[in-house]
């Protein structure tokens, strides 16, 4: 049965070989509202990056398709060719530049902030700070002297603060702000904003230079005609940093 399925699959796949080149697969996490998340009503991927990705592909005349992948393995799966791009709120950092390439940024360097139960929580030495594994914020906490508590998903980092496991969570402010607004004062953003990284860009394999040029050009046209700023304001609110 399995062999038959595989054989038919291979056959069906080889038949459509000539179409293959044009499809660009984009990997995303699907758990980082409002960057990329699952639409509650339809169960489909949605968010700022989904809308932006589709617009960029339209401008670059590429045929794109989003696929979901866990954050932990999002870079290895790009390298082994399971998809061609990463659009997952990934900040451009030197460490990541060593293994993959980035397009120019499509979100300007934005603030990271702490979210805690009270506004007077200490966040320095001795504090326990939650952050998502492998993020720019986790690296920052590890170097700050506070105890880093890592979680696989962003949601778990916030839950850790709610149940007292961590003193505060450190993440992108755009992710934390709606959570704070929704919590009826239970959770508050601290006035400790930090600027990290070189903004959010599209991650690509280092050998895909042609694709990178196309996307850079498409991002530039969106920056120039103001449509990128409009999209940022639509998803992140009027206070969000724009270009």
């Amino acid at each position: 049965m399995k062999k038959m399925m595989l054989a038919t699959a291979l056959l069906a796949l080889t038949a459509g070989a000539s179409l293959a080149q044009d499809v660009v697969r984009i990997g995303t996490e699907g758990a980082y509202e409002p960057y990329n998340y699952i639409d509650q009503a339809t169960g489909e991927l949605t968010g700022f990056e989904i809308e932006l990705g589709n617009e960029l592909c339209k401008r670059a005349t590429l045929n794109c398709e989003f696929v979901q992948n866990a954050w932990d393995s999002i870079i290895p799966n790009l390298q082994s060719g399971n998809y061609d791009l990463i659009m997952a709120g990934m900040s451009i950092t030197d460490e990541r530049e060593e293994v993959i390439d980035f397009s120019q940024n499509y979100i300007p360097p934005a603030s990271s902030d702490y979210l805690a139960l009270t506004a007077d929580v200490a966040i320095g030495e001795g504090a326990v700070i939650a952050a998502q594994t492998g993020t720019i914020q986790a690296g920052y906490v590890a170097e700050s002297g506070a105890t880093l508590l890592e979680f696989a998903t962003p949601d778990e980092t916030v839950a850790a603060v709610r149940n007292g496991e961590a003193d505060a969570v450190f993440a992108d402010k755009d992710y934390l702000a709606p959570i704070a607004a929704d919590s009826n004062g239970e959770l508050v953003l601290l006035a400790e904003e930090v600027q990290l990284g070189g903004g959010v860009g599209i991650g690509l394999r280092e050998t895909d230079t042609e694709l990178k040029d196309k996307l850079n050009a498409a991002i530039q046209t969106m920056k120039d005609d103001g449509s990128l700023n409009a999209m940022i304001t639509k998803w992140f609110g009027p206070e969000a940093v724009t270009f």
């Binding site: 699959a9 459509g16 660009v24 060719g81 394999r205």
Partner: peptide
Amino acid sequence: NGTEFRVCPEAKVPLAASSAIW
């Protein structure tokens, strides 16, 4: 090539163009 694994688009299984079900 280093950490990258690269075959030509025709050698992908399943092909990038094939539908999500495959």
